[in-house]
């Protein structure tokens, strides 16, 4: 099976997982869900690292990659930490 087809398999099956997992999320946590998925989409940082760190990368690619790494890491750190801050506020009556 060609790589692109493997990728397609993974993609489609992941969509199903996403579908079932997300419907289980309680509506009261929808804002943390958006924040968490946002942090997770910071996974784009992996792409940015691969572009920037390539040994043969030219200066232009390195610069593009550098900005991508910067933006994605703001996402990763900001996203997870703000989610944590929000979730820490959700308490039951008796602490």
């Amino acid at each position: 099976m060609p790589d692109t087809l493997v990728a397609l398999y993974v993609f489609v099956l992941s969509c199903f997982i996403g579908y079932w997992v997300i419907w289980g999320v309680t509506p009261s946590l929808h804002t943390p869900l958006v924040a968490l998925t946002n942090a997770i989409s910071g996974i784009i940082i992996v792409g940015a690292l691969l572009v920037t760190g390539l040994e043969s990368a030219g200066t232009a690619a390195e610069l593009f990659g550098f900005v991508a790494v910067l933006l994605a890491s703001i996402n990763v750190f900001g996203g997870f930490l703000v989610t944590n801050r929000m979730l820490a506020m959700f308490k039951k009556k008796d602490k």
């Binding site: 990728a7 997982i17 998925t37």
Partner: peptide
Amino acid sequence: GNLLLIIVGALVGFS
């Protein structure tokens, strides 16, 4: 060709 990005992208996209 990075499967992790595909998986995570699909999860977030569907969410």
